[in-house]
């Protein structure tokens, strides 16, 4: 049976103006997210990988309308999110939450752990008094913190524990979708494993759907059901993870996969070494955005941006040559 999509995005764009334009020179634009379409099914984890600056965080923020999209539509459970009024949006926020990369920056350092976790409840006036305290204690327990931690301030916690507080806060309103923007990137490997396990447990227990953003291909492989690869504001390949990791089609995916160092000294690697840097998202290359660095470049790669085409039911690629 075909499962319904919890979140569906079509033609999403987010451009940021840079500098001051004037009469004779139009404003320059950062094409942070440029024509992105995908969907996430209920209960699944979609991994989103790509290099720094390719627009992963912007995409995550735009999905929750924490920044307004320039164009495109977002549907959440059949509702068109992009059409909701401010007030409607505020109540929809209970359903969709976000966790940030930097657990130092994402918590207000003047609030205690307890008041941070309880904040969503007071904002939405969900519980009061003793019920609220119980709910906070329950949430802290769920993320592996004790009630004795409640009165402490963020700076008294380690990075991993702070990330747990952020997770507890995101869970407080029983959301359906959580956008996790590099939630483990700032953590040490041993702590990273703890937090990944926690996210997986919570997903099973509360039937959560994740958009999991990361630049660590191993982490994404571990946690995701499907993976989308982003390059310069566009999804260049999206596929179930096994398929993507074992037989990538887009040359960029291939380069990315082979670039990650393998923690095995005996492994033989055949690496596709990319030359050059990621081009500027302001002055985009003409044609395929990847052609300047592409190892399989051909003449027709300059003829406009290729469309995202489906190779099979779940596997789509933005490349003319496969």
């Amino acid at each position: 049976m075909e499962q319904e999509a919890l979140l569906r995005v079509t033609g999403l764009k987010k451009y940021f103006p840079v500098g001051k334009g004037d009469l004779f020179k139009p404003k320059e634009m950062v094409h942070a997210v440029d024509d992105v379409s995908f969907e996430i099914k209920k209960g699944e984890t979609l991994g989103l990988v790509g290099e720094s600056g390719c627009g992963k965080s912007t995409l995550g923020m735009t999905l929750l309308r924490l920044t307004e999209p320039t164009a495109g539509q977002i549907w959440f459970e059949g509702k068109e999110v992009t059409r909701l009024s401010k007030g409607e949006m505020r109540s929809l926020r209970r359903q969709m939450q976000i966790i940030f990369q930097d657990p130092y920056a994402s918590l207000n350092n003047r609030m205690t752990c307890e008041s941070i976790v309880g904040e969503p409840l007071s904002i939405h006036k969900l519980y009061t008094g003793r019920e609220r305290r119980e709910r906070v204690a329950y949430l802290l327990g769920k993320v592996g913190l004790g009630a004795e931690h409640g009165k402490r301030y963020p700076h008294e916690f380690s990075g991993g524990q702070r990330q747990r507080i952020a997770i507890a806060r995101a869970l407080a309103m029983n959301p359906k979708l959580i956008v996790a923007d590099e939630p483990v990137s700032a953590l040490d490997v041993s702590i990273q494993a703890q937090v990944i396990n926690l996210l997986e447990d919570l997903q099973n227990e509360f039937d959560l759907t994740y958009l999991f953003i990361s630049h660590d291909l191993y982490v994404v492989e571990h946690i995701s059901d499907r993976v989308a690869v982003m390059y310069l504001g566009q999804i260049v390949e999206i596929a179930p993870k096994d398929e993507l990791y074992s037989s990538p089609i887009h040359p960029y995916t291939e380069a990315l996969l082979t670039a990650a160092p393998v923690p095995d000294p005996t492994a033989k690697r055949k690496r596709v070494l990319l030359t050059g840097d990621v081009p500027s998202p302001i002055h985009l290359p003409s044609g395929c955005r990847y052609h300047e660095r592409c190892q399989r470049r051909q003449v027709d790669c300059l003829d406009g941006v290729p469309e995202l085409v489906f190779v099979n039911k779940d596997h789509a690629v933005r490349c003319r040559h496969f």
């Binding site: 990273q192 494993a193 571990h222």
Partner: peptide
């Protein structure tokens, strides 16, 4: 605690974290 060290065996398995800090 590294994810994906051994691709074939470790699929869909829980990571083994070091407890504590």
């Amino acid at each position: 605690s590294l994810p994906g060290v051994d691709r074939k065996e470790r699929r869909h398995q829980r990571l083994v974290a070091i407890p504590g800090i």
